[in-house]
Computed example of a mutant assay.
Amino acid sequence: MNFGVDATTAASIWATIGLVIFIGIMIYFGVPKLITKLLDDRIKKIEDELARAEALRAEAKALLAEYEAKRENAEKEAEDIVATAREEAFRLTAEAKASLEALVARRTKAVEEKIAQAEMQAVAEVRSRSADIAVEAARVLLQQQMAEKGDALVEQAIQDVAARLN
Rank of each mutant, 00 (worst) to 15 (best):
I46W: 11
A51E: 03
N166A: 09
E59R: 12
A157T: 01
A78C: 01
S12Y: 08
T108L: 05
E66C: 02
I25G: 05
D132F: 10
D160N: 07
E59C: 04
R127P: 00
A118T: 05
R71D: 14
V5Y: 14
Y67N: 13
S12L: 11
F90C: 12
K114H: 03
R129T: 12
E148I: 01
L92A: 03
K61L: 06
E59Q: 15
F29H: 13
R139S: 09
S12C: 06
A11F: 11
N73R: 02
V135D: 11
Q156H: 11
I158A: 02
I13F: 13
L56D: 15
E77D: 12
R139D: 06
G150R: 02
E49M: 04
I17C: 03
A15W: 08
L19G: 15
R52G: 07
R106C: 01
I46M: 11
L34R: 10
A157E: 08
I27R: 14
L103H: 13
Q144E: 14
E112P: 03
I27T: 12
E148P: 00
Q117I: 05
A147K: 12
A96K: 03
L165R: 13
Y67I: 02
D151Y: 03
E119L: 06
A53V: 00
R139T: 10
A152Y: 07
A85F: 01
E68P: 02
Q121M: 05
E95L: 12
L34A: 10
A69C: 02
E113G: 02
Y28E: 06
K44P: 01
L92R: 15
A78L: 11
K45E: 03
A138C: 03
R86I: 10
A51D: 15
T16H: 12
A15F: 09
W14N: 14
A69Y: 04
S130Y: 13
F29M: 06
E88M: 10
F3S: 09
L56F: 09
A53I: 02
A118M: 07
Q144F: 04
K70S: 01
T8Y: 09
A83K: 15
K149H: 14
Y67Q: 08
G18W: 07
V104I: 15
I43M: 08
L19W: 13
A83V: 07
A96C: 00
E113V: 08
D80L: 10
